[in-house]
Amino acid sequence: MSGILEGKVAVVTGAGQGLGRAIAEGLAAEGASVVVNDVGVSLSGESENPSAAEEVVAAIGAAGGSAVASDASVAEPEGAEAIVGAAMERFGRIDLVVNNAGILRDTIFHKMSVADWDAVINVHLRGSFLVSKAAAVHFRAQGGGSFVHMTSTSGLIGNFGQANYMAAKLGIVGLSRGIALDMQRFGVRSNCIAPFAWSRMVSSIPTETEADKVRVEKLKRMTPQKVAPMVAFLGSEAASGVSGQIFAVRNNEVWLMSQSRPVRALHRGEGWTAASLAEQLPTAFGPTLTPLERSADVFSWDPV
Results as ranks from 00 to 15, higher is better:
M1N: 09
L5A: 04
A10V: 03
V12D: 09
A15G: 05
A22S: 12
I23H: 07
G26S: 13
A29E: 03
A29H: 09
V36C: 09
V39G: 04
V39L: 11
S47R: 10
S51F: 05
A67S: 06
S73H: 08
G79V: 02
G79L: 05
A82W: 00
V84M: 07
A87Y: 01
E89C: 05
R90S: 15
R93I: 05
I94V: 15
D95A: 12
N99D: 08
N99E: 03
I103W: 04
T107S: 14
K111C: 00
N122K: 14
V123N: 00
H124A: 05
G127D: 04
S132D: 02
K133S: 09
R140L: 15
Q142F: 01
S146T: 09
S146G: 09
M150N: 05
M150S: 08
S154F: 06
Y165I: 04
G171D: 02
I172G: 09
I172N: 10
G174S: 05
G174I: 00
L175P: 01
R177K: 15
A180E: 02
A180S: 12
D182N: 06
R185C: 10
F186T: 00
A194N: 02
A194P: 01
F196Y: 10
A197Q: 02
W198D: 07
M201D: 01
S204K: 03
T207S: 07
T207A: 08
E208H: 05
E208R: 06
E210K: 12
E210A: 15
K213Q: 11
V214G: 13
R215V: 01
K220F: 03
M222S: 12
V231S: 01
F233I: 00
S243K: 00
Q245D: 14
Q245P: 04
Q245A: 13
I246V: 15
F247T: 04
A248C: 07
A248H: 02
R250D: 06
V254S: 11
M257Q: 00
S258N: 11
Q259A: 13
P262G: 12
R264K: 13
R264T: 10
R264G: 01
A265R: 15
A265Y: 14
E270G: 13
G271H: 08
W272V: 09
W272P: 03
T273V: 04
A274L: 14
S276H: 02
A278T: 07
E279D: 12
P287L: 14
T290F: 15
V298D: 03
W301F: 13
P303M: 11
